[in-house]
Amino acid sequence: MAEAAVKTVPLDKARALQWLQTYGVYAGVALLLIVNIAITPHFLSAENFRTQAVQVAPVIIVALGMALVIGTEGVDLSVGAVMALAASVTALYLGYGLVPALLVVAVFAAVVGLANGALVALVGVQPIVATLALMVGGRGVALVLLPQLEDLRNPQLASLGSGDVLGIPYLILIAAVLALLVAFVVRRTTFGRQLLAIGDSRPAAQLAGLPVRRVLILVYVVSALLAAVAGVLATARLQASDPTSLGNLMELSAITAVVVGGTPLTGGRVNIAGTVAGAVLIQLLTATLIKHDLPPSWTQIAQAVVIVAAVYAARGRGKR
């Protein structure tokens, strides 16, 4: 099928599309940087870069997990709800200290991930449906635990949200370390390779004796844990737990970052560097439009254009 697809599209066009899918996101980031340096006042300042990076860090962390799930030909819509859940649970258990609270958050996230994974891998529910259930239910639980916004006054948490090492905020450091870690997992571990094989051809992976169910469940647990990390960091930055609005539409931002970054929705391939760049691209796009006083609705339209472009580029490859 792959051969046939390539044959029907003229070669240079197929090549151009492939180039666009692999490198388009970096070109887009570079373009936005150049445009902004040229036309946006005060863009080229350390303070601005810091603000942008801190804002994008949670999106990157969630998108890393999303990239793994999409690599298995799945999707995880529950990540925003897991962020909200992490915020609620943090607020409830912060009295026992930051570390115990974080451990309880991890347990909650793991349970959501296990539920997603079990529905997908054991029951055979479509990923979009399984995680939709947890998306609705997860935020429901978050709001039951903590019905309204609550200010958090914990110096440790506050320093996690706004502290830095050598001028680099913790948020950025954590996102960078996690990105490197996930990239390493994809490239160098049995889990990473098995995940890609399952995403590319589930029947072949099954007949090759891979632990398909275990890998799928683990992928959803990892995605939920990463979303919980993002939820805790966002809460730390706000110094408030806001289960009503934290993580709203985060699943869409994360999917956009992954797709724009050149990871096909059809599974079998994960591009971590592209995913990070995809999140940065969306962030820069939003910032550009806001700084030039365009209404927020324009941001959404611009995002839509980027998504369509990414999907168009991905079409050249198609599904084998």
Binding site: T190, R193, S201, A204, G268
Partner: peptide, 27 residues
């Protein structure tokens, strides 16, 4: 049902035997 078309020759050959070539999940 046999090949994993998008993966390389190397990854396809090592697919089943991978756990035996790994320690603590590292290939």
């Amino acid at each position: 049902e046999g090949i994993v078309p998008g993966l390389s020759v190397r990854e396809n050959i090592s697919l089943a035997v991978l756990p035996r070539l790994s320690r603590f999940g590292l290939v």
